[in-house]
Amino acid sequence: MAEIVAFPRPSNHRPPSRPEPLWRHVLGDQLRRRRHGNEETLSETAAKAGVSPQYLSEVERGLKEPSSEMIAAIAGALDTTLIELASSVADELRAVSAPVSAAVSAGRGALALAA
């Protein structure tokens, strides 16, 4: 049987006041900002990406979980790359999650490991 090792709960540990944003929501916001920055309509960007305007709208609103192929096609239509877009989304998620991550790291978290 596996041994469970409990780590002490930090005294300053507070649950996050709001849930972390989902990847698809941050991705959608990034896509919309880039499209607006290019001064393009949904229809123009969707046509370049080979998707319907309705689908692109749903991605931008965080309602769809697009495949990496779809994200790459939309990124290309917005004159960026998949890696640039993914890095930008990750940076934004890190910035939003930093206070929670820092608190857990500083206090060494309240974790239990089992093998």
Rank of each mutant, 00 (worst) to 15 (best):
A75I: 03
A75R: 01
L85F: 03
Y55P: 01
A47Y: 07
D79T: 10
A72H: 06
R61G: 09
I74F: 06
E65G: 08
L78D: 01
E65H: 10
W23S: 04
R33T: 13
A75G: 01
K64E: 13
L27Y: 03
E84L: 07
S52Q: 09
R34N: 04
L63A: 12
E58F: 09
R24Y: 07
V59M: 08
R35F: 03
A75W: 00
V26Y: 07
H13Q: 15
R14V: 13
T41R: 14
A75K: 01
R61L: 15
A73F: 04
S52Y: 08
G50K: 04
T45C: 14
E60P: 00
S68V: 15
G28K: 01
R32Y: 05
Q54V: 11
I83R: 14
L56P: 00
G76L: 08
R32N: 07
E40S: 12
M70K: 14
A77G: 14
R32K: 13
S57Y: 10
P19Q: 07
Q54K: 14
S43D: 15
I83G: 11
L82I: 12
G28Q: 02
E65R: 10
D79F: 11
R34E: 06
H36I: 15
A73K: 10
E69Y: 11
P66N: 09
P53A: 13
N12V: 07
L82Q: 08
L82M: 10
R33L: 14
S43K: 13
E84T: 12
L22P: 02
N12P: 00
P19A: 11
S57C: 11
T80R: 05
P15R: 13
R33E: 15
K64C: 06
S11P: 00
T45Q: 06
P21A: 10
E44I: 12
S11G: 03
E60Y: 03
S67R: 11
R33H: 12
H36K: 15
R34P: 00
Q30E: 11
S67E: 09
L85E: 02
H13M: 15
S52C: 09
T45A: 15
N38P: 00
P15F: 09
S17W: 07
A72L: 08
A77T: 02
G50C: 04
A46K: 00
A49M: 05
A49W: 02
L27W: 03
E65A: 12
P16V: 05
I71T: 11
R33Q: 15
L85N: 02
R61S: 14
P66I: 07
G28H: 03
L27I: 05
H13F: 15
G37R: 04
S43C: 08
L85H: 04
S57W: 13
E20D: 12
E65N: 15
I74Y: 02
Q30N: 00
I71F: 09
E58M: 14
T81K: 08
G76S: 10
P21T: 10
N12T: 12
N38A: 15
G50R: 03
E20F: 07
P53R: 05
I71W: 06
L42V: 05
K48R: 15
E20I: 07
V59Y: 04
S67P: 01
V26E: 06
E84Y: 01
P15M: 11
V59L: 07
I83V: 13
R18W: 08
L85K: 04
P19G: 05
A77R: 02
A73Q: 08
W23G: 00
S11R: 12
M70L: 09
L42R: 02
